[in-house]
Nucleic acid binder design. Structure first.
Lengths: 360, 360
DNA sequence: ACGCTCCATGTGACCGTTCACATCGCGAGA
DNA sequence: TCTCGCGATGTGAACGGTCACATGGAGCGT
């Protein structure tokens, strides 16, 4: 909702430092360095470095003097120089698809906030199509930045393959539960969430339920589908094959229209809210009503879901918390801190008005 | 719609290079450097550097040899080293609010893609609240990265103030038209878009139209409001004071409910699609219908808008194009290339089913 | 009073690039 | 044939931090 025109203002790049008492001026156009600070403060550059890194053995008054000079000169540490010598970029990469959707966007924002708080930088690579080339491009872009950790919000299956091919050797995290590798698992339990949604439908009396799944190379899509299948099986409800979608409302609309030509179901569990919205549109277009004729459950609880018509029953995930934990997990590996956040995030069923008793 | 658990795999950080013919092995754990390449290729490090920078006077066969060795060693240039010596980070910063919304998220994705294509990196700082402190934090974060240009997708008014205070001296661009400073203006003409929407309503016979505006420290919110006001004035329709919102569907819902207690209007022009959705919800909750009782126009054309109930008439903006041009403009400043993209992006009225004749 | 430890600080090298400048041929013009 | 110019390449010094190590006192046990 943001937009148009563009104002640019061009300004000189150098920082004008006005030192009141004429001590030695810092060099020409460059920003002041550690040595400039040292000179003005009357200490060695190393002492300045120690102040910067909170080294314990510095006399408080020395420290304060250095700090004062830093402020006076508007000193900012040079990230490149530090990265060069330590060979640590302190950068976390995010490989993301459909970053314009609410879920990924929220997670990205949370990751960035958490990383920033921990003194890390974040670099995002968006891939438009999820073919191997785009993925490889995105990963190459991140690699060139020397990322120390990677978060994958994209079709994981292919990403992992590409990762191996490019021999990118950083710890990585993805935002969903696989079930395998529980040691390294941080979960909003997608499966549990999908089961809640499915159970809700079954409890309301539905027996013919379709599942509109997400792309199957997204592990969370797979997990939600598995949850659906598990619950259907556990309750002994006959299952039809899930329909594989692409997360968009458009797809939901077209799939819904298709499905309604036969109309052998009373409910649909969509793998995200957008697809659920599309289905509702198709239902109305067919002259039917939600939930009278068809009941619908979504997944994610995007902020708009409460205002859909009818307000959508869905499964809420805390994307922000997810992003935060993700970073905690990565940093645990990176900094050998013990990540506290391995517990499971429990999703929540938000009951609104899109589910009713079955029509037949 | 992405989510849950998290898989981490830890891998060694060093790159194992297997050089078939035992030439001198590169140093311990570090990645191969320009000198490693030089040694293996039998040239000087400077020659390698020249190959890297496409220097004209290098013999083709020398160049090829170096290229081969680079491939063999899996050499990747070290960004930090380069940034250090050139004091150019090749990084563009984005300061963004509400990055989870479709518009900003789309622009960000486009900016990142365009920047990547131009060999630049992108760093995003999200601000959660738009108070001065958050803004200052975000800007400080970006500054510490040595950004060379800045894109602002946030309440610009405050940002500009803070920018001045922090004495951040980089070229910047914002994603909207101000009207002032036409020389540096890249416009999706918000004003024109808002006028189109308003005119559409007036042409359909509406005379009592409310405007649900965005936060007024967003310049595009202001521009859309101005467009609304201008058109109303031009057509001699009496105007009521716009209502200042916050871009969310929730706000639209509550504002709509409030407005409907009086119901002295036949149409609402909302400053974005989310607020329009909220209003439609309120209208239905009041037992009324869109567009029979109230007509509604939105702004942005988010992908879901076509599937709202009723499908929303709105103004489409090409966020992606916007992001692209934004980068072109910045890079024009940065690299002294002539930015070709100063023309105006014309928004487009998408007529769907949320506007009808006035109820009274 | 001696030596040892530890605190506070300084010195110089090094990280991987680019930059400014030097060098070495070789062909062309006088 | 001598020199000048230029194309192709090499040499060494930055850039702004951190690291490993050195140094000079103060405090303290014996």
């Amino acid at each position: 909702m943001v937009s148009p025109a563009c104002v640019t203002v061009n300004m000189p790049r150098s920082i004008e430092v006005t030192v009141p008492e004429p001590s030695q001026e810092p060099p020409k156009g460059r920003a002041p360095s550690i040595r400039d600070v040292a000179r003005v403060a009357g200490v060695s550059h190393q002492t300045v470095s120690r102040v910067l890194n909170h080294h314990p053995s510095i006399r408080p008054e020395t420290k304060q003097r250095v700090l004062d000079v830093m402020a006076e000169l508007q000193y900012t540490p040079n990230r490149a120089a530090r990265a060069l010598v330590t060979s640590r970029s302190r950068t976390i990469g995010i490989l993301s698809a459909s970053s314009t959707h609410y879920g990924p966007a929220s997670s990205i924002a949370a990751i960035e906030a958490a990383a920033r708080a921990a003194g890390y930088w974040v670099s995002t690579a968006n891939i438009e199509s999820s073919d191997a080339v785009s993925i490889a491009d995105g990963l190459a872009y991140l690699r060139a930045q020397g990322i120390e950790g990677l978060v994958v919000i994209a079709p994981q299956v292919r990403v992992f393959d590409t990762l191996a091919q490019l021999s990118i050797d950083v710890p990585y995290v993805t935002l969903q539960s696989t079930g395998r590798d529980p040691e390294h698992t941080l979960s909003v339990d997608q499966i549990a969430g999908a089961r809640m949604a499915t159970r809700h439908l079954i409890e309301r009396g539905h027996r013919s339920i379709y599942h509109l799944a997400g792309p199957q190379d997204w592990i969370e899509a797979e997990a939600r589908m598995r949850g659906f299948l598990d619950e259907m099986g556990a309750q002994d409800v006959p299952t039809t094959a899930p329909i594989l979608g692409d997360w968009t409302a458009d797809f939901g609309f077209h799939a819904g229209r298709e499905l309604l030509t036969v109309r052998d179901f009373t409910a649909i569990f969509a793998s995200n809210d957008q697809m659920a919205l599309g289905v509702m549109h198709a239902v109305r277009d067919a002259g039917l009503e939600v939930p009278r004729d068809v009941s619908i459950v979504g997944f994610d609880d995007i902020p708009e879901a409460a205002h859909f018509w009818p307000p959508l029953t869905t499964v809420r995930q805390d994307f922000a918390e997810l992003g935060r934990r993700c970073v905690a997990l990565l940093l645990g590996d990176l900094d050998d801190a013990a990540p506290e956040y391995r517990g499971t995030i429990v999703p929540e069923l938000i009951v609104r008005d899109s589910v009713g008793a079955p029509a037949f």
